[in-house]
């Protein structure tokens, strides 16, 4: 969970930075999307680097889900008889929504790929410039799409607030002296990702970016 999660977090940071290019203008964003596909060209054929990254990402997603499902199944087997009364004593609610958060995010990623990658549920369709797809996707009349993104991105934020620290703990690098800084960093990273991801859709929906 920790290693595959880290790969995805790294992806999210780059993805967020890429998205913010929309504020530098449509051309800047389109050039960036084009650059992703032509990275290391002509050394390597069109889309080699991107395809490799996509394979790594898909592998991470699948392994992350597999690990979550097996942990969940082991947990079920370890407690066949449930408590009549059970009260949580640990601080924080984020740990309790990890599994539901994961499912929500997975469903969102499917919708999101159909929207902005394949253009199936996007007004502009597949044969359009990435920036046009993005701007059309979040136009004011499609406020409900923006709403879906808000819910999903907030879920990502909550997932990572626990997840990032948890990964460090799993890898054995956490301890009481470091925990304060580690938990704070996890919260900060999550907050930055949420704000960075939500800025473009909100700016488009509210007409700041056209």
């Amino acid at each position: 969970m920790a290693v595959t999660g880290a790969v995805m977090v790294l992806f999210l940071v780059l993805h967020m930075l890429g998205n913010l290019k929309i504020f530098l203008g449509k051309d800047s964003f389109n050039e960036y999307a084009h650059a992703l596909r032509t990275l290391l060209e002509p050394l390597l054929p069109y889309r080699t680097v991107l395809t490799v990254l996509e394979v790594v990402l898909v592998a991470s997603v699948v392994l992350h889900m597999w690990a979550a499902i097996s942990l969940s199944r082991r947990a079920g087997k370890a407690r066949p008889v449930k408590y009549v009364a059970k009260k949580s004593q640990a601080a924080g609610y984020t740990t309790h929504i990890m599994r539901w958060g994961g499912v929500t995010i997975a469903l969102f990623v499917v919708w999101h790929l159909l929207d902005l990658t394949f253009g199936v549920v996007n007004p502009k369709g597949f044969d359009s410039a990435p920036a046009d797809r993005m701007i059309a996707g979040f136009e004011p009349s499609r406020w409900w799409v923006t709403l879906i993104y808000i819910v999903a991105v907030v879920m990502v934020g909550l997932h990572l607030r626990h997840g990032v620290w948890s990964a460090v703990q799993t890898l054995g690098w956490a301890n009481s002296t470091r925990n304060k800084v580690l938990r704070l960093s996890a919260g900060l990273l999550s907050a930055v990702l949420v704000i960075g991801f939500l800025a473009p859709p909100l700016a488009i929906t509210f007409g700041v970016v056209k």
């Binding site: 097996s70 942990l71 947990a75 087997k77 949580s88 004593q89 640990a90 601080a91 740990t95 309790h96």
Partner: peptide
């Protein structure tokens, strides 16, 4: 026993 997901319920 199940796997640890670092929930912190134990130490509490």
């Amino acid at each position: 026993f199940g796997g640890c997901t670092n929930t912190g319920e134990c130490t509490a």
